[in-house]
Design a binder for these strands. Structure first.
Lengths: 105, 105
DNA sequence: ATGATGTTCAACCATCTGGTTGAATGTATA
DNA sequence: TATACATTCAACCAGATGGTTGAACATCAT
């Protein structure tokens, strides 16, 4: 869902986690290590990303391995792309009108 | 700022407002009309979008005319595009490795 | 001047959010 | 078995968020 993905990614910590996972599979505590907040806080962020479908979890014994699920980006990326296209078209149309106007002067 | 734009757009009401403004300049009360919430609530949402740079306001007498500022989308759109490119490259690399692996069997 | 219109401001409220700490759970290891 | 490790769960807290209502402000129309 677009909503969940956008909400999840509107937090800088969570975007950083996604970037971190860009380097490959990581355990929860590895992901948490660079941050100054508690492991618990990061664990919550991971859960949020997971709920949004952006992160997948693989349990091996007591360790939880996390991977990014890039497919989940798609909806949001597409939404922004659609916006971009729409506004570009609109600006082009506007510009076109203005040059036409100029031609009539 | 990426953060502000993403946060602003993570709310469905605010995304709807942006869509509404896609049709052209609108007064605050016109923007508010289709929503079931109070004018005040929408006014607050507009202010949020304005703070994020996504909306511009033009005061004419007592009326405030709003327009979308598509340029503000750019950062966010670019961020998603960068993500998309990064993950596609990563998947390609992975696929490549796997076919190489298969060739060695 | 009066009153209606368009909008914001201010105070309030319930819920969400992002963080904390401490305990619980499950698993590996000595 | 006892202990250390990896992680989550639960309770709590402060501050943000999204909504409400009522008053204030500025402007237009009579």
């Amino acid at each position: 869902m677009l909503n969940g993905v956008l909400t999840a990614l509107s937090d800088p910590t969570r975007r950083a986690i996604m970037t971190e996972l860009g380097a490959g599979e990581r355990r929860v505590s590895d992901v948490a290590a660079p941050f100054e907040m508690s492991l618990n806080a990061v664990s919550k962020h991971v859960k949020t990303l997971e709920r949004a479908g952006l992160v997948r979890r693989r349990r091996v014994g007591r360790e939880h391995f996390l991977t990014a699920n890039p497919a989940a980006f798609e909806r949001a990326a597409e939404w922004f792309d659609a916006q971009r296209k729409f506004w570009n078209a609109r600006l082009d149309r506007l510009e076109h009108l203005m040059t036409e106007e100029a031609g009539n002067e």
